[in-house]
Write a protein that binds this DNA or RNA. Structure first.
Lengths: 185, 185
DNA sequence: AAGGCCATGTAACAAGTTACATGATTAA
DNA sequence: TTAATCATGTAACTTGTTACATGGCCTT
């Protein structure tokens, strides 16, 4: 007996993946945008923890239009057309938002290298770690300057929250790097 | 003038993606394995920071075989066949390892939710954060017990290093969650 | 008005995930 | 011996990335 199946069909109809949800969410806050502008917006607004390429935007928007979650305006300047979220789209976005994050798998490319570092020629691992440290020190510094820039003025606290996550993350890397030296003599 | 092109062709010939590199690296340490065993090994050995699905293993191995980086033994029990790394494969693995991690993009699904949390009904965000906190507290506890289990006996320090990264990462999440409360009143 | 640049769009490819087919192995 | 289970393999689909085509726009 397929109990409860019918009741879930309707909600699954609205199901969107995180990338589409991000697109919808941004569209909802910003108003009509064409695909390029959307991609640019995504980069600025959520680029620190989520990547959305231009091509993805085009594809997702096309798919979302078929489902009636977004709609396009007339063709404009360079054959571009603005896209706006529909009510159904807003519903889908909010449904996604309410469902919370499911995926919890994080991939750290560096750790793959670390795992096999024993096979690296002497000194090479130190160099790699050095590069890595430099990059992340830079990232942390950038985050801190952003934080300083926005903290005094008016700002979205949730946006600040994501920034703070980044700062904690980078500090964790920093601390880990610090103890790496001891760990490896 | 295409200066230097010829000299780089040879090295690019060996180029493998991180997932293939992981497969080669594991194969290199473990000796011949069939695809399933390899997938299982990957899960156990590097599953904490890199995912390799069964299907990926089959596809990558097939591709690697064509390039002569791995080779298969005869068909066995359930039509399975053991796969082993070739010398060329070992070279490719070491070349990848030596190149260091390039990709540095990390995706945090939770932060997408956080970014749009203002659109969430009152209290729902707290619930989501609560779930998240519980999950990660559990992860951190697990990491700590693993650490305790291996730290006294003989162990690979690089393996320990990846574990320590995980612990720092989870602690960063913990700290961030702690300050989230203050941030949002 | 000619040329290069760049925004826009599309297509091809690579990687990741999910679902399916099959037959050996095991347990009743 | 029959049924259920599970290891193995394959295929279909989704998502992510890279490369390509086109033509409007700006500069000179």
């Amino acid at each position: 007996m397929d109990d409860g199946n019918l009741s879930t069909v309707e909600s699954q109809d609205h199901h969107v993946n995180p990338t589409s949800a991000a697109i919808l969410g941004l569209l909802r806050q910003s108003g009509p945008l064409n695909a390029n502008a959307l991609a640019e917006t995504a980069k600025v607004r959520i680029g620190g923890y989520w990547t959305v390429t231009r091509s993805q935007v085009y594809r997702e928007l096309a798919a979302l239009e078929k489902r009636g979650l977004v709609e396009f305006g007339p063709r404009g300047p360079r054959n571009s057309r603005a896209c706006s979220i529909t009510e159904l789209g807003a519903d889908a976005f909010l449904a996604w938002l309410d469902s919370g994050p499911i995926d919890d798998v994080v991939r750290f490319p560096l750790l793959l290298t670390v795992r096999f570092a024993a096979d690296l020629p002497p000194g090479r691992f130190d160099e790699i770690i050095e590069e890595f440290a430099a990059m992340h020190a830079q990232t942390l510094a950038m985050y801190r300057s952003i934080e300083n820039a926005i903290i005094d003025g008016p700002h979205d606290i949730y946006d600040l929250a994501t920034l703070r996550f980044g700062i904690h993350f980078e500090m964790a890397i920093e601390q880990w790097l610090g103890e790496l030296g001891d760990l490896l003599e």
